[in-house]
Amino acid sequence: MNWESWSEFFAMGGDGVYVWGSYFVTFACVIGEVLLISNRRRTLDKQYGLIHDSNKKEINNETSS
C-alpha cells in the first residue's frame, strides 16, 4: 500500500495536478462520449416517433374524411 492517508494519495507526491488533471479529463471524455451516443439515439427515436405519428394522422384523415 503506497499511501498512508487520503490527503497523501491526492497530493500524489506533489504531482497531483498533473496526474489528476490527466485522469479527470480522460474520464470526462469517456463519459461525454457515452452520453453523446445515447443522446444521438434518443433524438433518432424521437424523430422516428414524429414521422410515424404524422403518417398515422394522414392515414386517419384519409380514411375518416
Partner: peptide, 9 residues
C-alpha cells in the same frame, strides 16, 4: 516519483 502513474492512461 508519482507523475509516472499517468502512463496508465
Amino acid at each position: 516519483g508519482e507523475a509516472y502513474r499517468i502512463i496508465f492512461i
